[in-house]
Nucleic acid binder design. Structure first.
Length: 499
RNA sequence: GGGCGGUUAGCUCAGUCGGUAGAGCAGUGGCCUUUUAAGCCAUUGGUCCAGGGUUCGAGUCCCUGACCGCCCA
């Protein structure tokens, strides 16, 4: 026998059983309809004692995947998982007949079966279904992972997420929570009069963020297109157009590495509010996070990576400059805009200063290394340098600083918001500065979006905007320390030939 | 890109000093009418990630590479 054939023995045995069913004409029936879901059955009848159940004679049809099995000579127990929960079934030869019971014994773990019967309680008190008839609905041709330890190998879990979902119920819960998170976020924004919109994911110019885009090509128009790195510039065009409160929750794409915190495609919530500003967007972020934690965790705290995150009080606020000064005692207040001194401090800490830049990027680099990992409790960092904020409105009293914040939780950036820059001439100057940086070798610097400036020339109300990394929020809400745990199909290198 | 760890049966994992490759679960055959990681008896199943080297002999030691994970850039 070839190696490959041997490896397939377990599958071959199951295929043979399927073949036998085909010959009887019962391979993949489509006429079984369950009339009850396990979670509903448990919540309706879970409190009744055995006597009451017998008196009521509760009959039902359940369908599910057989996950465990305890076969005895003339009676057996098994657990069916129907996606909502697990219910034990009790199968007796007396009820099914010799042929029926032999058919049950032919089933394999993983098979999807439909059963009909009545509820009862076993000797140990478990709510169970006494089966009067049983049918195979869909054969499981491949053996399931080990029933007790489940599927642990992270690579297999991500590549075959269906198996992960079959074997690890807590994974299903993560994605239910993720869906709930998105529902709650939409509900909150809808209630505040925001309009959900969809703007292009394929853009002729990838703008709105500092990142490298994926490139593609449109054949009929023969033009390059870029997968968006952010929806920002389109959403603000809508504010110009009079849609004064808009939001979008959808994917953006950045052509960067893969890590526990980054996936090339990720889900961002962006919201823009005419007559809002940096301060009102902070309030919105705080309200949204508190609502999500309350609705999904049911409390005002989250356990995350050995920390208890507290969302009950107002989030802490600190300026970027003060945070850096606190973390770097060797830096004096007078030197926070001193390029040479900032480079010294970075190098003294063994950090590579970004090449040929002003004090703004240096100060942010210092912040990212010395402060960011320490911001465990929800913290708004405010007052960012204009140099690193090409779409933000400058502060009235300080031309080198903008009205901007970032929200950090668990040592990670969760949200970024600001008073939008609505002065088209200032915006044009900012784009020009970005082009100079690009010419200086910064491939991530923004391109000049002439139509966006033209839109601003028609007049945009003063506006506040915010972007929230929803994958990272999902990580917090589900206690996941890797972004892959909250993405159904995270990007992996393509699988080599395999069966 | 760098560092560390990993890769052994379908799954979860052992494998000592370099000396015939193991367990549990799953599978197969049998016993068993209240089990629940069911139990009992018997039993099948291996490209030890790949390639090279050292050695009488390599899952084990050395080198190169692949893939995965974690950390750093």
């Amino acid at each position: 026998m070839s190696d490959k054939t041997q490896r397939h023995d377990l599958v071959a045995e199951r295929r043979a059983k399927l073949q036998a069913l085909r010959e009887e004409g019962f391979a993949y029936p489509n006429d079984f309809r369950p009339d009850a879901a396990v979670d509903a059955v448990v919540s309706t009848f879970g409190d009744l004692d055995g006597e009451t159940l017998e008196e009521r004679g509760v009959e039902m049809r359940i369908a599910g995947r057989m996950m465990t099995r305890r076969v005895m000579g003339k009676a057996s127990f098994a657990h069916l998982d129907d996606g909502s929960g697990r219910l034990q079934i009790f199968v007796k030869r007396d009820a099914l007949g010799d042929e029926g019971y032999a058919g049950f014994k032919q089933l394999d773990l993983g098979d999807i079966v439909g059963v009909e019967g009545s509820l009862f309680r076993t000797k140990t008190g478990e709510l169970s279904l006494r089966v009067s008839s049983l049918r195979l609905i869909a054969k499981c041709l491949r053996p399931l992972p080990e029933k007790f330890h489940g599927l642990k190998d992270p690579e297999l879990r991500y590549r075959r997420r269906y198996l992960d979902l079959i074997m690890n119920p807590e994974v299903r819960d993560i994605f239910r929570k993720r869906a709930e998170m998105l529902r709650v976020a939409r509900g909150l924004l809808d209630a505040q009069g925001f309009l959900e919109v969809e703007t292009p994911m394929m853009q002729p110019l990838a703008g709105g963020a500092v990142a490298r885009p994926f490139t593609t090509h449109h054949n009929a128009l023969d033009i390059a297109l870029y997968l968006r790195i952010a929806p920002e510039l389109y959403l603000k065009r809508l504010v110009v157009g009079g849609l004064q409160r808009v939001y979008e929750i959808n994917r953006s794409f950045r052509n960067e590495g893969v890590s526990t915190r980054h996936n090339p495609e990720f889900t961002m919530l962006e919201a823009y509010q005419a007559w809002g500003d940096c301060a009102s967007m902070m309030e919105l972020a705080e309200c949204l996070l508190q609502t999500l934690v309350a609705d999904i965790a049911g409390t005002s705290t989250l356990e995350y990576a050995e920390n208890t995150l507290n969302f009950s009080a107002d989030f802490r606020r600190v300026t970027l400059t003060d945070a850096v000064l606190e973390a770097c005692p060797e830096l004096e207040t007078k030197d926070t805009r001193n390029t040479a001194r900032l480079i010294e401090v970075l190098q003294a800490r063994g950090l590579e200063p970004p090449p040929a830049t002003g004090w703004g990027k240096l100060l942010v680099a210092l912040f990212e290394h010395t402060v960011e990992p320490t911001l465990i409790q929800p913290t708004f960092v405010t007052d960012y340098p204009l140099e690193v904020s090409p779409l933000s409105r400058a502060q009235d009293g300080d031309a080198e600083m903008v009205e901007r914040f970032e929200l950090f939780i668990g040592g990670r950036e969760i949200a970024n918001g600001f008073s939008e820059l609505n002065d088209p001439e200032d915006q044009a100057r900012r784009f020009e500065a970005q082009l100079r940086e690009r010419a200086g070798g910064d491939e991530e610097a923004m391109l000049f979006d002439h139509d966006y400036v033209r839109a601003l020339e028609y007049g945009m109300p003063s506006t506040g905007g915010i972007g929230i990394g929803m994958d990272r929020v999902a990580m917090l809400l589900t206690g996941s320390e890797s972004i892959r745990e909250v993405l159904l199909f995270p990007l992996l290198r393509p699988e080599p030939e395999s069966d």
